[in-house]
Design a binder for these strands. Structure first.
Lengths: 216, 216
DNA sequence: GGGAATATTCCC
DNA sequence: GGGAATATTCCC
């Protein structure tokens, strides 16, 4: 168990007590009239303005968590206030604070006795071994895949560049064609039929699906 | 045990990395020339001026404790600097940070030495812990690769279609050109200079980079 | 340097 | 509200 307990009173308890001792904060946190519990009246404002003065944060939730760890009992009042109470946390009895203990986190109950412990340990070891091997394989595969993805990205980039290049070539061709016909029209006012013929002729051509390439 | 690991990289690691990324602090904390370890040159001043900017305290010792929990190796240099090193904490490889794991507190040596059984159980637990960490890494990588593959497939399909379309267009143009010149040659035996003019004229055209498309 | 307590955060 | 991880403190 916790053989080593700090002697003093927890920082959290002291600071919380201090807050309650501060008249300026009465509109946000205050003892009940008789001093056996206290209220937080506006948790939002309280969190933002008061908490950072006493702790390293401004989360109401964290404050709640602490109260909870010290076994304070919370109650929601009708007027929206939060009320907190602890048997040993009272205005008139600061000395009682030494009885407020923080909940220790984990109780390790030893459970039943295990006769076949060794047996089960061995089995577990074998399983562990299997898992390790498998995991190792997976790591290798994963690493390989990662590299592949990088390579693929590269290939893709390459392809994209190719495409761009092709596009440029195409543009040139188009321009070429365009110019050709311009010149043709200019120089052949006498026989405009030629252009017509060319266009007609070309329209007859049937298109065929080309076998481009097969990728995956 | 700890079945719940946070996905992200520990706040401590990120903040420490940030410090090292800050040129203004080079006189107090700085990467080694090659970036595989870092130095703290004046721990006193560092603690007072730098720590509170990145953490909630100004204790060099607390900072040390964290480095220690994350298995950094400390070395005291002759010139008084402190050097820290971790396999996966390097300037050029922020992505490796996911492999820097916080030591789990799990070791509770209650008193005397422990039975062999308990010992072996503990070892197994450690191993399990390691496996879990590694598995988490793998899951992250795998998820990343999956996303990558989807994106790549999409990009690739898109590109393929583009390419096909372009190819068809090109074919049409070529055919068209071919026909044009055939007709031209037939009908213009008298003035062969026209073809020449067309070719010369076209050669002068300047090319311009077209905006093709933007992928991912 | 590291064990263990308390403080704070995150999440179910 | 509480389990569990990380952050900070304290101490040997």
């Amino acid at each position: 168990m916790s053989s080593k307990r700090r002697v003093g009173i927890a920082h959290f308890l002291l600071r919380t007590f201090e807050m309650l001792d501060t008249p300026k904060l009465k509109h946000l946190i205050e003892w009940s009239p008789c001093g056996e519990m206290f209220y937080i009246k506006n948790s939002r404002e309280f969190a933002n303005k008061v908490l950072p003065q006493y702790f390293r944060h401004r989360n109401f939730q964290s404050f709640l968590r602490q109260l909870n760890m010290y076994n304070f009992v919370k109650k929601r009042l009708k007027n929206g206030w939060n009320q907190f109470q602890h048997k040993y946390f009272k205005r008139e009895a600061k000395n009682l604070l030494i009885h407020v203990h923080r909940r220790s986190n984990g109780q390790q109950s030893d459970e039943e006795e295990q006769t076949d412990q060794q047996d089960s340990i061995k089995k577990q070891q074998e399983q562990l071994q299997q898992i390790k091997y498998l995991q190792n394989d997976i790591v290798l595969t994963s690493s390989f895949l990662f590299q592949q993805s990088v390579i693929l990205q590269g290939n893709f980039q390459h392809l994209k560049n190719k495409l761009l290049y092709q596009y440029i070539e195409e543009q040139k061709q188009e321009k070429f064609l365009f110019n050709t016909f311009s010149l043709l029209n200019k120089s052949q006012t006498n026989s405009p039929k030629l252009t017509q013929t060319i266009l007609t002729q070309n329209r007859k051509e049937t298109e065929q699906e080309p076998q481009l390439f097969v990728l995956s």
